[in-house]
Amino acid sequence: MRPGDLLVLLLAAVLVSYLYLAFWGPGTAGEYAVIHANGSEWQKVSLHEEHEWQVPGPLGTSTLEVRDGRIRFSDSPCQNKACIHSGWLSHGGEAAACLPNRISVQVIGRDRRYDSISF
């Protein structure tokens, strides 16, 4: 085996793992989420770092929790808690909002598997 053979094998291995990750791997899930507050973008947050985001709104502070590549409203000062009922969001295009507190979140996937979601 010459160095050239090794190089070919190495590149082939890299290519195959890259293709695997690109088409079957976690890349199809969301990569980050955009949080909007009161009509403008508040923050882009990574879904790979566990964190609790405290987002200010007209009613008070809503909490958005990031864990295991997902995000959700875990607390909000609204009455009906529709935002919390929306549950975990993980796929590109998924969104939830707390309308009374004017806060929304949308997951952005690396390849945006869905352009829009019917719900």
């Binding site: 796929h91 979601i117 019917s118």
Partner: peptide
Amino acid sequence: GNLRAIGRRGDRPWRIGIRNPRGPGI
């Protein structure tokens, strides 16, 4: 969640996900 799509997304059609009513995701 009520949408209408016209045209395409460049060289491919628009892709729409339908929410799972009894669980997370699509």
